[in-house]
Amino acid sequence: MKIGTGIGLAALIVALISIFIPLAGLVLAGIGLVIACLGALFGDKGFAIATVVVTAVNYFFLSPSLWMSEAGSRVSGGSGNTEVWAFIVALLVAPIVCMILYSSGKIMLGKKAS
């Protein structure tokens, strides 16, 4: 098993575990996305994409704490948690950006420079 595949698998496992842990699971999912970025920079694509999909489903559909926070902010007269949602989208896009950087040869971890 290549190191990128191992790191990608670890990211997916962390993302899957984060589904079952309330509140702290949101942070754990973010950590899984950071690990997926590392895996993508080592050349893994499959597990990085799977981690993004699992985490997106977790954040947008399975996380009532995010939706309650959004509703509470709007009820109290606020405009919502725009910063939180922007941060979540940035985390979800990061592994894809890392895959593009690896594919273009800009950043390749674990490879000797030629």
Rank of each mutant, 00 (worst) to 15 (best):
C98Q: 05
G78L: 07
W85T: 05
L92G: 03
T55L: 09
S73G: 08
C98G: 01
S73M: 08
K106A: 07
V97R: 01
Y102R: 11
W85H: 04
V97W: 02
N58R: 14
Y102L: 01
A56T: 14
A71C: 07
G77F: 03
V57L: 14
S103N: 15
L66A: 10
G72N: 06
V75S: 03
I96S: 06
I96P: 05
M108K: 03
V75C: 01
L92F: 10
G77L: 10
G78C: 10
A90R: 07
L91R: 00
S104G: 10
T82E: 05
M99Y: 02
A56L: 15
S63Q: 12
L92S: 08
V84F: 00
L101I: 02
V97D: 01
V84E: 03
N81K: 07
K112S: 11
V84Q: 04
P95I: 05
M99N: 05
L62A: 15
S65H: 13
L62C: 15
V93K: 00
A94P: 07
V53S: 05
L101M: 12
S79T: 09
S69T: 14
T82R: 04
W67A: 13
G105N: 13
A71Q: 10
S69I: 08
C98F: 04
L91V: 05
S65M: 15
G78F: 08
G105F: 05
W67G: 02
M99R: 04
F60R: 02
L62I: 06
G72Q: 06
S69K: 10
T55F: 05
M99V: 03
G105R: 09
G105Q: 08
G77H: 05
I100Y: 05
Y102F: 15
S69F: 13
I88T: 09
K112Y: 06
F60K: 00
S69V: 14
F87R: 00
S103E: 14
M68N: 13
K112P: 03
M99G: 01
K112L: 12
L62E: 12
A56W: 10
S76K: 08
T55G: 10
K106D: 04
K111N: 01
P95R: 04
T82D: 04
E70L: 13
M108F: 02
A71P: 02
N81L: 14
L101D: 02
Y102S: 00
G105Y: 06
G72Y: 02
S76E: 10
S104Y: 09
P64M: 11
G110D: 00
G80E: 04
G110Q: 01
L91K: 01
S65W: 14
L62F: 15
E70I: 07
M68R: 11
S79C: 03
L62N: 12
A56D: 07
Y59H: 12
V93N: 03
G110H: 00
S104A: 13
